[in-house]
Every structure is written in structure tokens, then in C-alpha cells.
Simulated scan of single mutants.
Amino acid sequence: MSGSTQTSTALVTGASSGIGAVYAERLAGRGHDLILVARDRQRLEALAADLQARHGVNVEVLSADLAQAADLTRVEQRLRDDQRISVLVNNAGIAMHGTLAEATAAQIDSLVALNIVAVTRLAAAAAAQFGAAGRGTIINLASVVALAPEMFNAVYSASKAYVLSLTQTLQGELKNKGVQVQAVLPGVTRTEIWERSGLDVAQIDPQMVMDVGEMVDAALSGLDSQELVTIPSLPDAADWQVYIKARDALGPNLSRNSAASRYK
């Protein structure tokens, strides 16, 4: 998708505000037609009208709650069937404030349904359609807490670690099929997700909070550079490679026919 101006369609979830809305605006600026997915139809329609007027692209509104089985199936089927779609921005998600012990079953189920189940189902649908067509881009929004889970809530952090792992695995499965895959790991980004989770971003050190436009622009720059994992605030990409090399060094000893001598 690097610098692409060809007409193709991008499906963006969680598109009514925040990161998703900015992705929609940037992709429209690159010439992509759009399918905007979120629960709030009114906000989606206002965004669609604005993007059509400013960028001259076709924008369709698909109102859906991806935590609900019927709505998820509808969007999933659209991804599988619509050959015009060549970009998926898997952005819809929720956060949760507080400890795991304090979380209600409903809160846990809701977060897992959106951050894990919906992300996986849509990625699978896109992988099937894009892989068969020999082209396409899947962008999965994770978080830096995938690498530093102690920074935040247990369920949210674990869900984003899952998204990172899913993306890395997908890249291995799709690398010979012409499909580009990217995991984006933002730090704290100034969006509505924090208010909804009960966390006041104003209480966080301003040096740790990035504006959403800057975050998405960095993520798209990483996509253009063919990065599998993009951490918008990381100054030196070599630091990520050091992390990967340290992980790879564990490889020969992760599965052996006997326990390590230190356990005997």
C-alpha cells in the first residue's frame, strides 16, 4: 500500500472517533474508498460526508457492534465477499481500568469479545480474501502494553499481547501470498477510549501522551517502510531488533526432550 493512490477500498473498524477516524481521513487522502464500521451511525455518517466532500472518495457507513455475534458475522462476511476491499484496519477496541480482581464478568467478556474475538475473526476473513487475491494489507492495532504488561490493566494488556502475537503469526502465514501485515503499538494516545474506561488522561505525564494524528501518521510511515511491528514513539528501530534477537536466542531451548539441569 506504500504511497498508494490506486482506487481500492479500506474497511476501518472503530471509525467513528479517535484512531479509527484519523485512519479513515488519512486513507481517504491516499485515494482509498472506505467502509466505516462502528456503533454510532450518526457520527459515521457525518465523517463519511466530510471525507467524501474533501477527498472525492466513496465512503460507505456500516453500523455494527462488533461485540455482538450477528453484527460481527455481517462485517466478517463483507470482508470475505467484497473483492474491492484490500485494506483492513482492525482498530475497534475498548480499555478497562482497575485490577482483574475488581473486574466484573460482563466487563471481561465485553473486552475479550471486541479486543480478541472480533479482531481475530476479521483478520481471518481478510487473510482468506486477500491471500486468495494475492494482495492486501492488514493493520492490527495493538499497544505498547503488549511488551510491558505491568503498565496497565491485566485483561487489556493481555488482549494487546494477543494482537501482537496474532499479527506476527499472520505475517508468517501470508508472507508468500502478497499480503502485508502490520501491528501498531501506540503508547498512550489522546482519544476517547480512556474516558470510557474511567481513566483521566490529564493525570498522565504529558510527555507520555501522543496526539492521535501524529500517532497514525507515524504508523502509516512504518507501513510504507514495510515494518511488521511499528512503535510510533520508539526513536531507534535497532532497539526492536535487539529485542527480537534476544527472543530468538531462546529458540533452541524452548522445547527439548528433557528439563534443564537447573531443575534437577
Rank of each mutant, 00 (worst) to 15 (best):
Q68P: 03
D236K: 14
Q68D: 13
H55A: 02
Y156T: 03
E227R: 14
A24H: 06
V216A: 10
D71F: 08
P252H: 06
L170S: 05
L141S: 04
G18R: 10
A219V: 04
V117G: 05
V12K: 10
A146Y: 06
S86K: 08
Q77E: 15
T167Y: 03
E227T: 02
V112M: 13
R262V: 11
M210H: 11
I204N: 06
T13N: 06
E192Y: 08
L174F: 02
G29A: 11
A92G: 10
R41F: 02
T7A: 00
T73K: 15
V188T: 13
A132G: 02
Q6C: 04
L100N: 11
A46V: 10
S258I: 04
L170W: 03
S261R: 15
E214W: 08
S165T: 13
N253F: 13
I231N: 03
V181M: 12
D81I: 09
V22I: 14
P235F: 14
V59S: 06
I244G: 07
R26M: 06
W194K: 09
L166H: 04
F152E: 15
V184A: 14
Y23A: 00
D82Y: 04
A95D: 13
V57K: 07
L27M: 01
T167G: 00
N153Y: 02
E60A: 13
S17G: 10
I193K: 09
Q180K: 14
K175W: 03
Y243T: 13
A246P: 06
L114S: 03
L51F: 00
R247S: 15
S16I: 09
V112T: 02
D239P: 02
T137W: 12
V75N: 06
V209S: 07
I139G: 10
A124E: 05
L11F: 09
A101R: 15
R26I: 00
E173W: 01
L250I: 04
L234M: 15
S159Y: 05
A259K: 13
A49G: 11
I138H: 00
A64L: 09
G93I: 05
Y156N: 03
P149L: 03
N115D: 14
E227C: 11
R80Y: 00
N91V: 02
H32S: 08
T120L: 11
Q42E: 15
I138K: 08
A101G: 12
A70F: 08
V22C: 07
A92F: 08
A64N: 09
N140R: 11
A106V: 07
G136W: 01
N140S: 12
V22K: 11
L250V: 08
A70W: 07
N140E: 04
Q203H: 03
V163N: 09
V155F: 13
L66C: 13
K264W: 12
S4A: 14
Q77D: 13
V155K: 10
L250Y: 10
A128S: 05
N91Y: 04
A132L: 05
L66A: 00
D211A: 07
L27S: 07
L147D: 03
M210C: 04
I116L: 13
L250F: 10
S8H: 11
L254K: 11
L122W: 00
A126F: 00
H97I: 06
K175A: 12
L111T: 01
R78K: 10
R262N: 04
P235S: 13
